[in-house]
Design a binder for these strands. Structure first.
Length: 422
RNA sequence: GGCAGGUUACCCAAGCGGCCAAAGGGAGCUGACUGUAAAUCAGUUGCGCGAGCUACGGGGGUUCGAAUCCCUCACCUGCCA
């Protein structure tokens, strides 16, 4: 039996940890209670959080007790980041986002059976805490020298913008969370991204000073791309897990487009496939890269994990229909309808709408000017036939089955112009 | 509270009265080559078909003319209290 730490390392989920031998023994000795926090800084989690959720799932599957923490309190303060001071969101907004995140995290964990996961909110133990108690009971354990030495704090201090006391204090709040979960549930392990290392240690040290007990921290590496660009960037920004912020179709397409150089690493990290299965896919990439088997497996598994089997079946079918070799005109109405259902839409309201208007309405281009530019660059096609005239209009006979025309910008960005039925 | 410096397009950054819809770099987008990949090369990137319109932190002024000069407000940074 492979030790969970070795498995995580092979999966590329292990960057660093506190005393690895001690952690290894603790994980072998029996169930360890572990937590990972998620701050509500947006209405949805994204690709970065996905790594943490996969890690928690591995730990739960290995028999450990998992706590998912939503940062109702920390989300109101803001973790300092290099790009500068955050703009605070209203308490109402943070509250709404907390609820959305709770639902998202729940999908990844099992709340049934003999080892159920649990969701907690750090607002529960910080909202009532008075400033005096905070400064006396918690603040006394913190040394300014250590706090100032934290990488982000130090760099922000040295930057032009500086750092507010609010964000500077963030590390204490996160330390307090770990202490509280240690007291309440015997939690002895906190996980997070490697950029969270300092914040995780804050809790480990606080538990040692306040309780005299040992706790552990474990971080995942930053996910990188072979070409050096940032992982998880799309036209719309991040890769969101919420279907109302990124459609399952777009989500699937993101993973399908993974570089050859990255796909095997991502299969290890983001899927639960066995070593044998991944080895086979690695051969496939080397021998017949044009079949994109590894990319398909990756996109299928991750989409299923996040959006469920039914949504995945729909987007896989749609992708095959739209990117298949066959003629779009030969697709039957049912298949085409299911496929275009996944795409952004523009409504055909008149008999001869301008193509640029349809492009803009569907969100394929930023505006009419950008649409004209795209057409003159040769970057727009309707039903896979290139459009050459910026003033082109859509004619009724271009509508497949009398209802749909597939708009394409560039090689792989699709939308549909649809004429309402009846 | 005082003094000094700063705020330019997605990001960094030049510009210091007309030649500025604004240099340069990054990033994005499109094409060629391909495999819904990468690399490379080329084009392109405020809105508008166009006349033109709106823009250089907000507001007000000087001027024939302001991103550029003056006043004021907001925010950021540094030094002093």
């Amino acid at each position: 039996m492979v030790h969970i730490l070795d498995e995580l390392r092979w999966r590329g989920l292990l960057a660093q940890s506190t005393d690895e031998e001690a952690l290894r023994d603790a994980l072998s000795a029996g169930p360890v209670t572990v937590y990972c926090g998620f701050d509500p800084t947006a209405p949805s989690l994204h690709h970065g959080h996905l790594v943490q959720l996969v890690l928690l799932r591995h730990l739960q599957l290995a028999g450990h007790r998992v706590l998912g923490l939503v940062g109702g309190a920390t989300g109101m303060i803001g973790d300092p980041r290099m790009s500068g001071e955050r703009v605070l969101n209203t308490k109402e907004t943070v509250g709404e986002w907390v609820e959305r995140l709770r639902a998202q995290i729940s999908r990844f964990l099992d709340f049934e059976g003999e080892n159920p996961a649990r969701l907690v909110n750090n607002l529960d133990w910080t909202a009532q805490l008075s400033a005096i108690d905070f400064l006396r009971d918690i603040g006394k354990h913190y040394r300014l020298g250590t706090m100032l030495a934290k990488d982000t704090v130090a760099r922000r201090l040295a930057s032009e913008e500086g750092i507010s006391f609010t964000e500077f204090s963030y590390q204490i709040l996160q330390g307090l969370d770990f202490l509280e979960l240690n007291r309440r549930y015997g939690c002895t392990l906190q996980t997070g991204g490697n950029d969270q290392w300092g914040n995780l240690l804050s809790g480990v040290e606080l538990i040692r000073k306040a309780e005299g007990r040992t706790a552990h921290a474990l971080t995942t590496p930053l996910i990188t791309k072979a070409d050096g660009t940032k992982f998880g960037k799309t036209e719309g920004g991040a890769v969101w897990l919420a279907p109302d912020m990124m459609t399952p179709y777009a989500f699937y397409q993101f993973w399908i487009n993974t570089d050859d150089a990255d796909v095997i690493g991502y299969l290890r990290t983001f899927t639960f496939r066995s070593r044998e299965q991944i080895a086979e896919l690695e051969e496939a990439v080397a021998d017949r890269p044009f079949t994109r088997e590894a990319q398909r497996a990756l996109a299928h598994d991750v989409t299923t994990l996040v959006h469920g089997q039914a949504a995945t079946d729909a987007v896989v079918a749609a992708s095959q229909a739209l990117f298949g070799r066959g003629e779009l005109a030969e697709l039957d109405a049912g298949t085409l309808e299911a496929a275009v259902d996944e795409l952004p839409k523009a409504v055909v309201g008149t008999d001869a709408p301008a193509v640029v208007d349809l492009l803009a309405e569907a969100g394929l281009v930023a505006g009419r000017g950008a649409g004209r530019r795209a057409i003159s660059e040769g970057g727009v096609s309707i039903n896979n036939v290139r459009v050459t005239d910026p003033d082109a209009v859509l004619s009724v006979d271009q509508l497949l089955h009398g209802r749909w025309a597939v708009l394409r910008r560039g090689k792989r960005t699709l939308a549909v112009a649809e004429r309402p039925n009846g």
